[in-house]
Design a protein around this nucleic acid. Structure first.
Length: 482
RNA sequence: CGGGGCGUAGCGCAGUUUGGUAGCGCGCCACGCUUGGGACGUGGAGGUCCCGGGUUCAAAUCCCGGCGCUCCGACCA
């Protein structure tokens, strides 16, 4: 037994001391990633990748339910394709990786390693779409993309990352807009319902929107250090790409028309959000729906009773396998205390302890990761209790995060208060804004805060801009962002 | 891309000021003993001191140049 029996293991820097260090400690201690030998690149290890698989499954299910099909497009994009849409090139050019050689020879045309696939998809859609009967085209792909970033952090911003990108083509502007909004709602549902992360929905300003889009909608989440994280974006591309890639169809009146397009994406960044929304000083805290292991069984077997305890643990393991993702940690080389700490750092929602004392009473001990609460449960009620606890933890984590966001969202009426909040409390600021780009930029320079989104609110805005005193045009959520 | 910090065994570090041929803790391997919040003993394995040049009889240590990680800003899922 350790010498400091009333202290938990201090492998992780407390959040309050250094949030960035805490984040780095957690991803390492939870065994989610390792740094790769290439700058800005990470290996997603099995435990981290399993989380991604669970996230993927939840989103993919909803994509299919909303009529989308998966496909795969090439990773290499000819430079000439990439350069067609002016705003798009300008936006992405600084972070594109180029392939100049193949098979030992120089290529006649450079190939971009996709930073996003709009141009490749559009080139193909131009071939595939002829008639109004071909529409809509609703395709998604799960893939990797590369963006040559200057500052990288595991999951939050890496040179290569995994994501999904939906690309759709429609006959009308209305349909495209409807699709853009529908997928934003799908994102919000999945992120809130599965990752237990509350999000704000809204529209990006011109400054923040996707390069080449008419409009960008987004979901924004608040991290525990008071900074915002863009968790997903959905773009209405209008006819910008259709016109330069010549994606046309004959409508019912025999008229040649350009299609209307959308694209939308979420990435492995969601895992970063998961860590920073739910995690605590003991490590990761995973919502049951995305936890690789929902229950871990730790048998406590002193000499003489070990076999009996283990046998019972195996039986429980088998029973629980029918209802959840459960693991029996029967390693002999670690003490129970060591295992408790280890699985807590990895964020497993429920721990089941079984020892001689429990055997006598025909019970087990369930310990919740979210609250630390210990609860003796009769073995007969185990399956039901585990299911109830997992469901409860899922909801409770969402509630807790929602309350945190509410407590850290400030409606602000004037510049002084704006500055004070950004200086001290951080979080979201809801304020009236003039809608001027120059003012938005000024706020960013003064406070570090950007407009995260313009909420879809029915409330009319009146009065003056929170920062420049011009007449207000819109409500805006501000925050310092990742 | 600017500014700071760091790079020595798998991890965390000492050694660098003042050059002399590498050490500690944890982990790892073997055996024993243990198991209700990171046990203990004995023995053992493990190092291009980030990389490349230079100075020197001699470089982890001094000089020059790279690379990587990290934090803070500018640009971005």
């Amino acid at each position: 037994m350790g010498k400091n029996q009333n202290e938990f293991v201090k492998e992780i820097t407390p959040q309050g001391e250094d949030f960035s260090q805490w984040y780095t400690d957690v991803i390492k201690k939870a065994d989610m990633v390792d740094y790769a030998p290439v700058k800005g690149c990470m290996v997603i290890k099995p435990y981290g990748y399993r989380i991604w698989e669970l996230i993927q499954a939840a989103f993919d299910k909803r994509f299919k339910e909303t009529g989308h099909q998966n496909a795969y497009f090439p990773i290499f994009i000819p430079e000439s394709f990439f350069c067609k849409e002016a705003e798009h090139v300008e936006g992405f050019a600084p972070e594109v990786a180029w392939v100049t050689h193949g098979g030992g020879e120089g290529l006649p045309e450079r190939l971009a390693v996709r930073p996003t696939s709009e141009t490749m998809v559009c080139a193909m859609y131009a071939k595939w779409i002829q008639s109004w009967r071909d529409l809509p085209v609703l395709i998604n792909q799960w893939c990797n993309v590369v963006r040559w970033e200057k500052a990288t952090r595991p999951f939050l911003r890496t040179t290569e990352f995994l994501w999904q990108e939906g690309h759709t083509a429609h006959a009308t502007a209305e349909e495209a807009e409807e699709e853009t909004r529908r997928m934003l709602d799908v994102y919000a549902e999945c992120v809130e319902g599965t990752l237990a992360i509350p999000v704000l929905r809204g529209q990006k300003t011109e400054r923040e929107k996707f390069a080449g889009a008419v409009r960008t909608y987004c979901i924004e989440a608040l991290m525990r250090d008071g900074r915002a994280l863009q968790a997903g974006t959905s773009h209405n591309l209008g006819q910008h790409f259709a016109k330069v890639f010549n994606i046309t169809y004959l409508d019912k009146n025999d008229q040649l028309q350009y299609v209307w397009q959308t694209s939308w994406g979420v990435s492995t960044r969601l895992i970063g959000a998961l860590i920073m929304v739910h995690g605590d000083d003991r490590g990761l805290v995973l919502p049951p729906k995305v936890a690789p292991l929902q229950v871990v069984i730790v048998p406590i077997g002193p000499a003489g009773k070990r076999e009996a305890v283990l046998a019972r643990a195996r039986q429980l393991h088998q029973e629980l396998q029918a209802i959840c993702r459960v693991h029996l940690d029967d390693r002999e080389e670690y003490t129970p205390g060591w295992k408790f700490n280890d699985w807590e750092m990895r964020g497993v929602p429920l721990r089941l302890e079984i020892g001689p004392r429990d055997m006598e009473k025909n019970q087990v001990l369930l310990v919740r990761r979210d609250s630390g609460e210990k609860c003796a449960v009769a073995q007969d009620d185990l399956a039901k209790t585990v299911q109830d606890f997992l469901a409860e933890i899922q909801l409770l984590l969402f509630e807790r995060a929602r309350r945190f966001r509410e407590d850290n969202t400030h409606q602000v009426a004037d510049k002084e208060e704006f500055d004070r909040v950004m200086e001290n409390e951080r979080g979201f600021i809801l304020a009236a804004h003039c809608g001027e780009d120059s003012c938005e930029l000024h706020i960013k320079e003064q406070t570090g805060a950007t407009i995260r989104c313009l909420p879809f609110t029915a409330e009319p805005v009146s009065g003056r801009c929170v920062y420049c005193d011009r007449p207000a045009q819109q409500w805006a959520y501000f925050a310092r962002a990742y």
